[in-house]
Design a protein around this nucleic acid. Structure first.
Lengths: 347, 347
DNA sequence: CTGAAAGCGCTTACAG
DNA sequence: CTGAAAGCGCTTACAG
């Protein structure tokens, strides 16, 4: 460990018999036609032989950019979606030779403020402020000192660029898919948590119904209190036990769908023979393993992560074109992942 | 964005009417008794009023440390454990005022090599080389240029410090727990993937059996090919259909346990009345939601992440004491999470 | 075509 | 007790 000293630019200059300037110019591709090919080759050879790589701190200090981007998230530890979002962000950062600084705040506002400070201390080129669940947020002021975009989150006023899932379109598509299979009594097992996801999916659900000439029946909507498996179970049970039982269930998420499966089983019914189900999230740990495997709307976590840093990097390059008066509010589509929980209605 | 210039140390020196030296000394707590309290107060006030914070790149360049640690992982996007590991790593880094550079390689050796280079370019103070599943690895040589520890991974020779779950102890404990409930025919639904987890758990299982005076019956071990739900289902089915059916199943992971539940249900049996089950992983998305909720061994992801950076940071501070001839090979315990899938045997 | 010099923003001997 | 100066390792006008 720490064996021999890392070579410096002066080492390669010495070995190539040129000045520091020449080395820097050549290695940064700014030599152009000014420096003879032979010299350039000599410099490159020397650099390669020594295994020279510029010190990012020195270079960053001088160029006033760190080749670093910050991702500030809220609860990485407790959501299985985090990885995909981070992967998308990283891939985009990496594509520009940048490295990703990650800090997770656990929704602690105090810690969050300190995290932003720390990121700015390190002079990150840009920041991505992320939530693990689509949310309306009021991010710490500091992030505005630098190009910033909101990931799976947006401000109430839309004064910062953001990328979120197109919840309404997804719900609309789910209803359309079910209607396309012939269902006319399509229930919505929603969460009572009044976030953008619940609100916008409800809207999409309603739009979907009317687009297919189906009446919106309040009895076809059941709310699960916590958005978890038991609450999905309970909500589905109410739906199944009501009169005019639905033939299809659109569930707020895969966990609730898992509860719905249980309710259906308990009532001696079968998926999809008696009841069709469409979930939401495409949770890798659940959806493929349910019996039968669950058809569900996929949240575009990877794509959102990627979009966020691509956009924030674009802001960095061309503030004029990419930072118009109105910050971009991007909605990414949620593809339908077809498995085996939907069939034609029997009743 | 980019509104007003970030204040520099010279700004606070100007405002406080002292030299840069004095400001630096005071702000870094190296003023001691040399600088009168009054002056110190003036400096601090000036710094606060201006909102001064040192430029981490400049400071890093000068001090030859970046206050940064690198985490290099393999497949963050596809495993729900990633978050907890990263959270543990971050918390430990954060506790020392350091920030975490994350790069995920997708198990691409080429990318991995480049990632290490990039991290070293940024002069990270230390690197944590992580796997999402306990594995024997041969990490890129570059990480040895800096204090490094392996997270949820180890080298064949043990020449790098590492932290992994104590697989054998966990399996031993699981068998003990089952035996404590009176079970004597305890089967092991293992994975056929020959990693350290499978091997060491098998060992622990055998030790557990003999510690409780139970015979090791080869017919009590079934292998699932992929370690997923269907393979758990199939393996459990074989066990249930064999003669001398087990009264308890210890499963390699929660996904396989989920498959086992299905097999048990299919055979008209019940958990835990007819068959008790202990899983592994404590997957938040599965274990609590199974019916009945699954008793399982928890993988200490958070703790491992935390230990890894704490240890690597300790190496940084006191190489002599913490980097003995033999790099530390840490095994962290996997606590048993008691839920409702285990009861006394009936048969 | 190539090099000497300044400077990015700090910290830290060193001097007084 | 405090400051002027050197230096961390680069890049980039500027000069020749």
């Amino acid at each position: 460990m720490g064996t021999r000293r890392r070579p410096l630019i002066r080492d390669v200059a010495g070995r190539a018999g040129v000045s520091l300037t020449t080395v820097s110019l050549v290695l940064n591709g700014k030599a152009g036609a000014n420096i003879p090919a032979e010299t350039q080759a000599r410099v490159r050879a020397a650099a390669k032989e020594l295994g020279y790589r510029p010190n990012a701190m020195a270079r960053g200090l001088r160029r006033q950019r760190s080749d670093t981007i910050a991702v500030i998230s809220d609860e990485i530890a407790t959501t299985p979606f985090a990885g995909a979002m981070l992967q998308g962000a990283q891939d985009a950062a990496w594509a520009t030779g940048r490295v990703m600084l990650l800090v997770n705040t656990g929704r602690d506002v105090n810690l969050e403020a300190r995290a932003v400070e720390a990121m700015l201390d390190h002079h990150v080129d840009a920041v991505v402020y992320a939530r693990m669940h689509h949310e309306v947020v009021d991010p710490p002021a500091g992030i505005r000192d630098v190009p910033a975009v909101l990931l799976d989150a947006r401000t109430a006023s839309g004064d910062l660029p953001s990328v979120v899932p197109d919840e309404a379109a997804a719900a609309f598509a789910a209803v359309g898919y079910l209607a396309g299979h012939g269902h006319r009594r399509i229930a919505f097992v929603n969460t009572s948590d009044p976030g953008p996801a619940a609100i916008e999916r409800l809207e999409g659900y309603r739009l979907g119904l009317s687009a297919h000439g189906l009446a919106a029946d309040p009895a076809m909507i059941a709310l699960g209190d916590y958005g978890d498996t038991p609450s999905g179970f309970a909500a589905a049970l109410r739906l199944l036990d009501g009169d005019n039982r639905p033939t299809a269930l659109f569930c707020f998420n895969d966990r609730m769908a898992m509860g719905a499966y249980r309710a259906i089983l308990l009532r001696g019914l079968r998926v999809p023979d008696d009841i069709s189900i469409v979930g939401f999230d495409n949770m890798e740990q659940i959806a493929p393993w349910l019996d039968p495997p669950l058809t569900t709307m996929q949240l575009p976590h990877y794509e959102m992560g990627r979009w966020a840093v691509e956009h924030v990097l674009a802001m960095l390059d061309g503030p004029s074109t990419v930072t118009p008066r109105l910050p971009m509010q991007m909605r990414l589509p949620c593809p339908l992942v077809e498995r085996r929980s939907v069939g034609p209605p029997t009743a």
